[in-house]
Amino acid sequence: MKIDNSTIQKLAHLSRLEFDAQGVEKMKADLSQILDWMEQLNEVDTEGVEPLTTMSTEVNVLREDVLGEHLPHEDGLKNAPQRDSDYFRVPKVLE
């Protein structure tokens, strides 16, 4: 799979990442190489095979809906890079 600049830019935006010109070139080369290698899977016949979507053997893990302790407000804010008294602070969202 040949990856071009616009694909890298699109993937970077979806991943919320940014790359400089040199980083784009490196990522383009690496992704092309790795995807070529991944495409070996096309050699495997998977006609009629159901995809395996879960590994846990547990089914319907349910619990009673009971009143319980939540994370205390202050603990929830403890690791915040920026906060005020009650909230996580982020840069301005609305103009």
């Binding site: 919320r16 990442l17 940014e18 690791n79 915040a80 890079p81 920026q82 982020v90 840069p91 969202v93």
Partner: peptide
């Protein structure tokens, strides 16, 4: 994403650039 925990870039000017 820099909102609730971990590193946050000091260079951001809006929310999207903060994430990126």
């Amino acid at each position: 994403d820099g909102v609730k925990y971990g590193y946050r870039s000091p260079h951001a000017h809006n929310l999207e650039s903060m994430y990126k």
